[in-house]
Design a protein around this nucleic acid. Structure first.
Lengths: 211, 211, 211, 211
DNA sequence: TATGAATGAGAATTCATTCAT
DNA sequence: AATGAATGAATTCTCATTCAT
């Protein structure tokens, strides 16, 4: 994969967060309340429609309180994107960890992804919007995934578990399938059961269109 | 495909609302200048960062002139999305029209898509952003494509040209591959030649990962 | 005089003024109205108490109009300081220009200064406040004056018109007298007629305290 | 001197308002820490830029602690101005007390003033800013000085130690020289040694410019 | 006495849109 | 058709001050 610059590892302190860390349990709770409210409100209304006021109202705190924990609207947003990345990586590696069969891992990874997306639709939408709100976070998010994916595919090809082929492009293509299907259900409200969608897509991924 | 709500047809009069049609050649030229400037500026800076002022400055006209041709900022945006849809459909049907071999049509359609995206990156970005700025236009755009794609796949399966399988999900999955690869080059600036990308992806689409 | 850095010449474009120049007579008038209102309001209430709202209210325009002509509150302020410098230099050189007798020039310069200050008390106050609001403008203002003053004193000493002595320190001391007497009347509201004040101060400047 | 309004005496209870007096040694220390931090921070950043937070951070205490010792931001400021007045009067009377020769007292007073200012530049800046932040305190400060100065000059003239002349105006003029020279070094960073500056200014004060 | 979380009023600034010329 | 001045609502962010612990 064409790594342009930054490493694919987890960002440690991206942005030097100015929002101070809470020092008491109460503060911790407030911070979480705001973060949750931000996920809900931004995820629903979009970054620009969601005002700080609407977030704090949802969180049940005063407007000023927001700035005790986050230095700006961009910062919460960015934090949500990073959080989504962390959770998703966790969920997927839980689902596929230690699977011997690469093709089965492919199926389970997709299922885990779609399940997670369905459970946190607002968070998913936020990541999509990150492309326009916080391109750096967005790119970091995708690079991290793509790099992991690429490695998996490359190793599988090496081991003869799958047909050989450019792992970079394949990684992007397979991520594209996952995204599209996530959008299919979240954005377009399709109600086909996840397991069914997973099986259809997996069949395509594994055996292609050819008769 | 699960149609939820609005029809998949082209918006009929979307702009008849207020954006008066120019009556002179000069007016026509001005309108086009503004539309082009909007594509460039919004595509680069994003809908919210792009002000009417920055668009008219780019177009070389006064701010007020904008409202002679468009009734609002949303309207130009919407018009650009519709335009992109029209052009893309044209380009793709040009590339695949009358092809007997469905699998080859798949390849050429993907190539045409990636080529077009590379030639109008700002316009492509605008369509992506439409998800957040003008969800209706966005959904209409995708539904139209998905529906066409679905039909093609269904007929091919029917005709025994490809393996049978749920055409709806497949359509979305294949569109997802195309989008991801478009983003791969436009957003992430990957420089792998399009033809190469197309071949790799096509190989995956046609024969899958299985050894 | 210890020139630390910047030249003593008039700043040409200090701050790259973002506030666009008006293009019509109406715009010109509005800009002037705002500038005048700013002088009045900031001069009276001080920089921090004077809100943009209070300035535009005084000027009889909407708040947004302010930003058509000035890019920020600091910018108007800065412009007022520069304007004061220009006017004052003009007034003083008018009053003393071509005077052969240095000591008489001293008297007339002081009179012109105090007269001007009395006629534009708000503007005077703004310059004083510049020390805290826009230190660069403040220093530029004083350096310019001090340098002119120093030259005048140095030449006079050279020519034998006054007793020799360090012209730098003297320039600052004499400027200090003028400022203090300006404050005496403007800030402390003393009502001694200017001419009287001038004579008393001039006597001190010329002959000192010694019996 | 033309007394306009408030008496020239020290403010009586200025802070008895709400700022509770500390009752323990620890409290006393905390109060002093805050006062010192306020001098440093306000003196450097100016009243408006200096937030309570920046002061308490500098002092190493929590924000709320500030309000145990001072009832408002204005109050600390005011207290600093009064403190400066007290110290300066002390320093000057130490330097000139019991001097028989008025002209020599003039020299030593100036030296003491400039020395003090150089040792506490932030405090000096605070007094200057008081003109805009706390005009009452500012006027009180200057009136007190001016009145003392005036008396000294009047008595000296009476006693035939100096040439006769309006003591009010002279007092302001001489104070103006001192202030300007203080600013010369503090604000403009001139590095001429104080003793030299004092001698030059004293020569001017005593014998004037005339050849 | 000390802490630090919470408040909410207030201010600057931006920008889509309107309108007189 | 074109201009550009004017509007004012909306939004983010800051900060002095209060208060429960």
């Amino acid at each position: 994969m064409s790594e342009t610059g930054t490493p694919a590892k987890d960002q440690p302190d991206r942005d030097a967060q100015t929002g101070r860390e809470p020092k008491t349990a109460r503060g911790e709770a407030t911070r979480r309340a705001i973060l949750g409210a931000a996920e809900k409100v931004i995820g629903r209304q979009g970054f620009n429609e969601a005002s700080i006021g609407s977030i704090t109202r949802e969180a049940g705190v005063a407007q000023g309180t927001f700035y005790i924990y986050f230095s700006s609207k961009d910062e919460v947003f960015s934090e949500l994107v990073v959080e989504m990345g962390r959770m998703l990586r966790h969920v997927i590696s839980e689902a596929t960890g230690g699977m011997a069969d690469r093709l089965e891992a492919e199926r389970e990874g997709l299922r885990a992804f779609l399940t997670f997306v369905a459970s946190r639709p607002e968070l998913y939408r936020i990541v999509q919007e990150a492309q326009f709100v916080d391109p750096d976070a967005y790119r970091a998010y995708f690079r991290t995934f793509a790099e992991g994916y690429r490695q998996g595919l490359a190793e599988a090809a090496e081991a003869g578990a799958i047909r050989p082929g450019n792992a970079d492009v394949r990684a992007w293509a397979l991520m594209g399938i996952a995204r599209a299907l996530g959008e299919y259900s979240v954005v377009f409200g399709d109600t086909t059961p996840i397991d069914e969608v997973v099986d259809i897509a997996h069949d395509l991924i594994v055996d292609g269109l050819r008769k």
